[in-house]
Design a binder for these strands. Structure first.
Lengths: 234, 234
DNA sequence: CCAAGAAAGAATTTCGACAAAACCTGCACC
DNA sequence: GGTGCAGGTTTTGTCGAAATTCTTTCTTGG
């Protein structure tokens, strides 16, 4: 009964509007790096390639611009958001500050359910291969999803939904930078061990250690990506 | 030469597009409370009242939805974002966490220019009346602007632009809640003294004291607004 | 030869009308 | 008496073309 009354009147994404569908696809293309930073987004071409009119396209672009994944130039159209070294640094610093604050609060407030969710997320992350190919690095979407869930689980108990949404957005943008650099960067540090250390510190309610490890985790990744980005630009 | 080359090719907001113009006005109407939370936003009515077609209106609404000031319901149009007590609490907690993190970093990194900017912003805030009317509370836009600048100046040196942008957004949303409750709430606490205390602690590089005061500052305001909101709803 | 200006070309933005979905109302039926 | 279904109505979402703006190119004068 409950299931039915939930399934029928709230199908959520039952018949997504063309604008939102295009928005999702376009976002995916930007995050994956298929649309490179700075690329001009011509309405005509996009409309043709995505099979939509001008209105839904424009709506999607406007939304992307509000999310920071595209830039809008008045009367000059849209382009994919730039990806410069300076912006990467600001992004990483923001991530460290925001996530450490959320993690500290999560550790302070988290209950047993939160602990279990962290344990579970870490377990699932460990059971998935990071790369689809054993020799060459090829991003595994499933690992990416588990990775995201793990980090979200850590912060989930902070009781500040807007902050969590912000962390999600930063995570997305960071994923974009990683995708832009990933053909080269397959650093052989032990990411799983880092995750384990963070999880343990969090479960031990050692906020100082957990936040320090988390900050290190992000700054290290940022250094790799930044090095590759810098090499590519100049 | 330099002045001319700066004035001509980068007039920034020279000829704002109709969509952005409408977006600004609509946002102002939501933030000021003229459009109450939950209000249905019918495209036809809006288009008529703002003197624009469907396309720019829809684009503005889409942007507002991405910013969190409006909600989108697929195939069911838009409505002004809700303003419930639970959301207010999450908002305040987010503000406290994000701004305290930014302030701590700002205190760690701020140089002499940052100190001077803080002093200046506080001075300017003190010279403006908080209410336009001495007897009854009537929001003074100039005071609001100075208030915003003061809090921004405090965080400005943290070196994390995305985090600052996030704080701006939270500040806006908080301003909306204040506007929704302001007919009643003219608490006679000494806000100027609170600001002075925060500024002094920051300039003394006492991060613990400064963040504690800042958190108290927001939580106190939140308590007032929340009390009024609760009285109105329940 | 270089600079400034006009005109053509291309792109963005906006409008008005069309199609599709949701909503409301009234009616028959269990 | 309430439920479910058909009708019309309102509202949203989409398309294609017009209007405006930007960009580029070509010309003209110094």
């Amino acid at each position: 009964m409950v299931a039915m009354s939930q399934a029928m009147p709230l199908p959520e994404g039952r018949d997504p509007t063309l604008a939102t569908s295009v928005h999702r696809r376009l976002r995916e293309d930007i995050l994956s790096g298929r649309l490179p930073p700075g690329q001009k987004l011509k309405l005509r071409d996009l409309a043709e390639s995505y099979g939509a009119g001008a209105s839904p396209m424009r709506e999607a672009l406007s939304k992307l611009a509000a999310e920071g994944l595209a830039e809008r130039l008045e009367h000059r159209g849209f382009r994919v958001a730039a990806a410069a070294l300076g912006q990467l640094n600001g992004l990483i610093r923001s991530r460290v500050l925001a996530e450490c604050a959320a993690l500290r609060e999560s550790i302070r407030q988290g209950d047993a359910a939160w602990e279990e969710a962290v344990v579970l997320a870490q377990h699932r992350l460990n059971r998935v291969a990071r790369s689809l190919d054993a020799h060459r690095f090829a991003t595994n979407p499933e690992w990416e999803a588990c990775h995201r869930e793990f980090h979200r689980a850590l912060l989930a108990a902070c009781g500040a939904p807007p902050l969590l949404a912000f962390c999600d957005r930063l995570r997305e943008e960071a994923q974009r930078y990683r995708a832009l650099a990933n053909t080269v960067a397959y650093p052989d540090r032990d990411v799983a061990a880092e995750h384990a250390a963070i999880a343990r510190a969090a479960l031990d309610r050692d906020a100082d250690a957990a936040t320090a490890l988390l900050a290190q985790h992000y700054e290290r990744t940022g250094a790799f990506v930044g090095a590759d980005l810098g090499r590519r630009v100049g």
